[in-house]
Write a protein that binds this DNA or RNA. Structure first.
Length: 496
RNA sequence: UGCCCGCUGGUCAAACUGGUUUAAGACGUCGCCCUCUCAAGGCGGAGUUAUGGGUUCGAGACCCAUGCGGGUGACCA
């Protein structure tokens, strides 16, 4: 059911990199827009000039693109409802603010931050919810004017507060949560809509922009529920219709059970970090979409097009979702396994170079070698950075054989196997896995030693490890020279 | 302390507006198979409707309490 009037937005503030939770908000808005053939808009909410970060906006957009999102309007793609940065929309806000003032729906407030803090402390001590107390309580219009004039005379700069209607119920049918209602007396008093620096606060700017940009649906985090009544009363004050709201459950941390906080170190928080570690964008998209939303069938691996096709906002979950890193790894592994070999090689090679396991600008021979190595691990890598630790045996000189491994080769047949293997591979023409496998088979035939007794000594001698990928491949990757050297050393070690 | 919301196994969750669900499926976990080993893969197992009341012929689904968890309470967004 295509609806041309559907317009949704993702509205990040450029205070840092793209966070998992924000990425999810963006994705759900995107999916909703694309499923309904509506528009997806990006708006930068940069009214807090102090917290803005220089490349915050760029980083947000870059990472959204990496995830595979595209938008119809945004700061880098002007449409007819621009500008798309709130800091550039002052000329739109100012007359509307004046209108509220003129209609006495908002007023200047001179209460200083110190006074407010003191009020709040006193309220807390009394056991009441901290709230703003009307500073002109009980005053006549004359007295109010006089009070303001006095404040001005003292050089105080005012903020503008919205006059919250008394004992009024604000409610809406939330797409996710169902019917929600608040009594206006419980929201903390008249709130600030324009800061001392003249910038509108989030709550004001967001409703003006959503209205002006003809936003039809707002999908945002559960943490915005408490803002919604404030926004509804402003829509009412302007005489505008509010969009439909859907408040999505938050992502929680398995460790703390609380909403993902940027300080929680048990979970990687930013999309960029996953990108750096060699996660695949489609896998991230897939995983994030399954956080708080579920498809109809039993499958869980889908590409973007499939998600768009089957997206249904009614299947958004009411309850918070734990971020499960294990599942992310599993999903990413599914994508790595089925990904194009060149893509995997490219990404994993970068990891190897970054880590210094392969030199910068490797020659073609090294790249060929790396390709074989990477392909060997393609089936089991959850994310590309793992190649460094998984394949460390191919980069580092191994430690001396000990423990179980030593025990494994402390028997009568091991030296025979090793000597045979060593002398035979010295002479094979092409040192590759096919020839190596043939060699091992030939030893089996000639010595009648087989199975673990045959394979383990070779594996341990060559790699010093009891585990690893297919042995012939491993030996090929280690190379003839190193393999022979390791066998030699091992023979010496077990002879003494 | 106020207000708002949530609660199906260790985790994500399905079960559309109450009726073959002996509560899907996935991750994880455990066992087996494959196998020189690890991983991947295949097969299988264990494990859940927070508690107490009600409504109903019938409740995971509806109502009420209790408990637990979360969100919010900014001149942040």
């Amino acid at each position: 059911m295509a609806n041309k009037n559907i317009r949704v937005r993702y509205a990040p503030s450029p205070t840092g990199h793209l966070h998992i939770g924000n990425a999810r908000t963006a994705i759900f808005n995107y999916l909703f827009a694309r499923h309904n053939k509506g528009k997806f808009i990006i708006r930068i909410e940069d009214t807090d000039t102090k917290r803005n970060v220089d490349d915050g906006e760029k980083s947000q957009l870059d990472n959204l693109k990496w995830l595979g999102l595209d938008w119809d309007e945004g700061p880098d793609k002007p449409g007819k409802f621009g500008p798309y940065r709130q800091s550039e929309r002052r000329s739109i806000y100012d007359p509307l603010i004046q209108q509220l003032l003129d209609e006495d729906k908002a007023y200047y407030s001179y209460r200083t931050e110190e006074e407010l803090t003191a009020d709040r402390e006193e309220q807390r001590a009394r056991g009441v919810m901290p709230h703003y107390e009307y500073e002109y309580e009980g005053m006549t219009e004359e007295e109010i004017k006089q009070s303001m004039a006095e404040s001005e005379a003292k050089g105080l700069k005012p903020v503008i507060r919205f006059r919250v209607p008394k004992n009024h119920t604000y409610d809406w049918d939330d797409i996710v949560k169902g019917h929600v209602e608040f009594n206006s007396d419980t929201i903390g008093g008249d709130f600030v809509i324009v800061k001392r620096d003249g910038m509108p606060t989030y709550n004001l700017a967001v409703i003006i922009d959503d209205h002006m940009m003809k936003i039809s649906h707002v999908f945002r985090g559960d943490d915005h529920v408490a803002n919604t009544p404030k926004q509804l009363m402003m829509y009412e004050a302007f005489g505008w219709d509010a969009p439909k709201f859907g408040h999505m459950s938050l992502i929680t941390s398995a460790g703390t059970g609380k909403k993902l906080s940027k300080r929680d170190e048990s979970i990687i928080q930013f999309i960029e970090q996953y990108r750096d570690r060699g996660y695949l964008p489609d896998a991230m998209f897939n995983f994030i979409t399954l956080l708080g939303w579920s498809p109809k069938g039993e499958d869980e691996i889908f590409n973007k097009q499939q998600f768009i096709k089957m997206y249904d906002e009614n299947r958004l979950s009411k309850s918070p979702a734990n971020f499960d890193n294990k599942k992310l790894e599993w999903i990413n592994n599914q994508y790595v396994k089925s990904a194009d070999e060149d893509v995997v090689v490219d990404l994993a090679l970068r990891q190897l170079i970054d880590k210094g396991n392969i030199e910068q600008n490797p020659d073609s021979k090294t790249v060929e070698w790396a390709r074989k190595l990477i392909v060997t691990y393609k089936q089991q890598m959850s994310f590309m950075a793992q190649i460094n630790s998984m394949a460390s045996v191919f980069f580092n000189e191994p430690e001396e054989i000990s423990g179980d491994a030593l025990e494994e080769i402390s028997n009568d047949t091991a030296p025979t196997v090793l000597k045979e293997f060593s002398s035979r591979i010295k002479n094979v023409a092409i040192f590759d896995k096919v020839e190596i496998l043939k060699t091992i088979k030939s030893i089996q035939k000639d010595t009648k030693i087989k199975g673990r007794q045959l394979w383990m000594p070779i594996r341990i001698a060559v790699t010093h490890e009891m585990h690893g990928p297919e042995l012939p491949e491993s030996i090929e990757l280690i190379g003839r020279e190193k393999a022979l050297k390791h066998i030699d050393e091992t023979l010496k070690q077990i002879n003494q």
